[in-house]
């Protein structure tokens, strides 16, 4: 038996909107730790890792570890039917081939339930070790989204370089080239508006903008984004989900040979 009650149901709606274009089908894993997912895009270039910790739910019952295969587009369709202020409860019985999403309006005058068919998904899980990164950039998520969108109108790839001067996003295309430099800026009114750069080593890596633009669909989840870079590793783009967990996107770099 599984029953997870999330008072801030809009978080789950935003999570689905942030990952459904990158991944079609995924297994949601439910354990005493929380509600989680790890899935790669069909090209195995990008990976999404989601964690919603059990403490973040108002009620969290998960009698035994459960993995539920879902089509994310169908799940998003159902969650779109929940109001932004609704409480969402996810329910599943042991051995059942369906999951139920229950939506309660804040005043309890409208209660809906949507039953979705589960699917068997043969997904490949990757072991991702905790790593020390050469550079970690924290910046406003809207700024990062703007940069990825702007650069993708010029080129297909972005080179992200971190030096002590700041973080530089560069692209080149048929019509020309663009460079955007963000300097560390901690003297802002609101901490979430700051750009903070922690650098151990200078880093320069190239990525497909098509994927970074997918990641920025998570912008509504968090006012800040953290970009962790090492010369020998995929980049990690992390959006924290208030008090509950995170959505992390991993993206393998492009390399020149």
């Amino acid at each position: 038996m599984l029953e997870l009650r999330l008072v801030q149901g809009s978080l789950l709606k935003k999570v689905l909107e942030s990952i459904k274009e990158l991944v079609n089908d995924a297994n949601f894993d439910c354990s005493s730790t929380g509600f989680s997912l790890q899935a790669m895009d069909s090209s195995h270039v990008a990976l999404v890792a989601l964690l919603l910790r059990s403490e973040g739910f108002e009620h969290y019952r998960c009698d035994r570890n459960l993995s539920m295969g879902m089509n994310l587009n169908n799940m998003a369709k159902m969650l779109k039917c929940a109001g932004n202020d609704d409480i969402i409860t996810i329910k599943a019985d042991d051995g059942s081939d369906t999951v139920t999403f229950m939506f309660e309006s804040p005043t309890q005058d409208k209660i809906s339930d949507f039953e979705m068919k589960l699917m068997d998904i043969d997904s490949e899980h990757l072991g991702i070790p905790e790593a020390e990164y050469d550079a970690i950039v924290r910046m406003p998520s809207a700024e990062f989204a703007r940069i990825c969108k702007d650069l993708s109108s010029i080129g297909d790839t972005v080179v992200i370089s971190v030096t002590k001067e700041g973080v530089k996003f560069s692209t080149k295309g048929d019509i020309g080239a663009a460079n955007i430099v963000c300097r560390q800026n901690t003297t802002v009114d609101k901490p979430d508006d700051a750009t903070v750069i922690e650098m151990k080593e200078p880093v320069s890596l190239q990525f497909a903008l098509r994927y970074t633009n997918f990641f920025t669909k998570a912008t509504p989840l968090s006012s800040t984004v953290t970009i962790s870079l090492s010369n020998e590793l995929p980049v990690v783009v992390e959006y924290k989900i208030a008090e509950m967990g995170y959505v992390r996107f991993y993206l393998a770099p492009k390399i020149e040979e």
Binding site: A46, L126, P234, A252, I255
Partner: peptide
Amino acid sequence: QIFQKILVDYFDSK
């Protein structure tokens, strides 16, 4: 030439 690496070049399958 620019090549796109894939994730299993970096992380092991569990």
